[in-house]
Design a protein around this nucleic acid. Structure first.
Length: 256
DNA sequence: TCCCAGGTGTCGA
DNA sequence: TCGACACATGGG
C-alpha cells in the first residue's frame, strides 16, 4: 500500500485530533486496548489490528489509479508529486462530527486541544455525555452550543447511521440540518467519517488556493468552486481537495 | 492592537 | 442569493 503514514495522520484529518504521535509512532486506545501504527518500509501495527488499520487508511483506495484521475493540470501534478502517499482516512462518524464542529473558525493545533479535552480512555464523549455534562473546561467558545445542540438533535432521533445508505447530496442535506453544521463541516464529516470521496470541503485554505489557481485570483463563490471541483475531479474530488489543502498550507516546504 | 484559524447563523437588501 | 456581522478563544 502506497502510504506516507506521518503525512496522512497529520494532515488535518480526524486522526490528527485523536491519535497520539511519538516520533512517527501513532497510538490510541481502541476498545480499551492500545493500538500502535508505524511505518518501517511498510505499514506495521499492533497484533490484532490489521482490519482496523486497513479500514482507517482505506487500503482499498488505489492511489496510482486515483492520481491518474485527478492529475488534470500542473497544480495537481505538483501537489501529487510533493504529497505522494497521502491518503484519505476513515474514522468513526461521531468522533469526526465532534472534531469538525470543534474545527469551526479554529486552527488545527487548538482543534486538537479542544478534542483531546473531550476524550477519555481513547474515545470522545458520547452525544449523551456532551449534552448532560458541563463542558466549559474544554473551552470551545461559541462552538459549545453548536456541539450541545447537535448532540441533542442526534439523541432526539436525527439518525447518523442512515447516512451510510444515502446519496451524497441527500447526506449533505441531512447533516446540514444539524444546528452548527454547515456545508463545509458536513463535507468533512462525509469525507473523513463516512467515506464519501466526492466530498469537497471548502475552507479558507481551499478557497484561497482554488481562486488563485483556477479562477485567476477573482473572488469566487463556494458554490462555483464546488461545481468546478465536481466537474474536474468527479468522484475523487475529496482526494484532490486533500492534496490541495496540504499544498496550500505548505505542509512540506522542500521541493518534491 | 490587529489578524487569523479546515465556519455558521442571522439579518437586511 | 449575496454581503456584513457577531460569535469565543488563543497564537503570531
Amino acid at each position: 500500500m502506497l502510504l506516507d503514514l506521518r503525512l496522512t495522520m497529520k494532515s488535518g484529518q480526524t486522526p490528527e485530533f485523536v491519535w497520539d504521535d511519538s516520533d512517527g509512532r501513532f497510538s490510541r486506545l481502541v476498545g480499551g486496548r492500545l493500538c500502535e501504527l508505524w511505518h518501517d518500509g511498510e505499514l506495521r501495527f499492533t497484533d490484532g489490528f490489521m482490519d482496523y488499520a486497513n479500514e482507517l487508511l482505506r487500503e482499498d483506495d488505489d492511489l496510482e489509479k486515483i492520481y491518474k484521475k485527478i492529475n488534470t493540470d500542473d497544480v495537481m501534478d505538483e501537489a501529487i508529486k510533493k504529497y505522494r502517499g497521502l491518503r484519505i482516512t476513515k474514522s468513526e462518524p461521531w468522533e469526526t462530527t465532534l472534531a469538525f464542529v470543534c474545527s469551526i473558525n479554529n486552527n488545527i493545533k487548538r482543534i486538537r486541544k479542544n478534542v483531546q479535552s473531550l476524550m477519555a480512555g481513547g474515545r470522545v464523549m458520547t452525544p449523551e455525555e456532551i449534552l448532560n455534562t458541563d463542558i466549559n473546561f474544554a473551552r470551545l467558545g461559541f462552538r459549545q452550543k453548536f456541539l450541545k445542540k447537535t448532540a441533542e438533535m442526534i439523541i432526539g432521533g436525527h439518525s447518523m447511521s442512515e447516512i451510510n445508505k444515502m446519496k451524497y447530496e441527500e447526506a449533505v442535506g441531512h447533516l446540514t440540518k444539524l444546528h452548527g453544521i454547515g456545508n463545509k463541516v458536513a463535507n468533512c464529516i462525509l469525507l473523513f467519517g463516512y467515506g464519501f470521496l466526492e466530498s469537497f470541503p471548502t475552507d479558507t485554505w481551499i478557497r484561497k488556493t482554488m481562486t488563485e489557481n483556477y479562477f485567476g485570483g477573482k473572488k469566487t463563490s463556494d458554490a462555483k468552486i464546488t461545481d468546478f471541483a465536481f466537474d474536474r475531479w468527479g468522484k475523487y474530488a475529496g482526494y484532490a481537495n486533500q492534496y490541495l489543502f496540504c499544498h496550500a498550507r505548505q505542509l512540506k516546504t522542500d521541493a518534491i
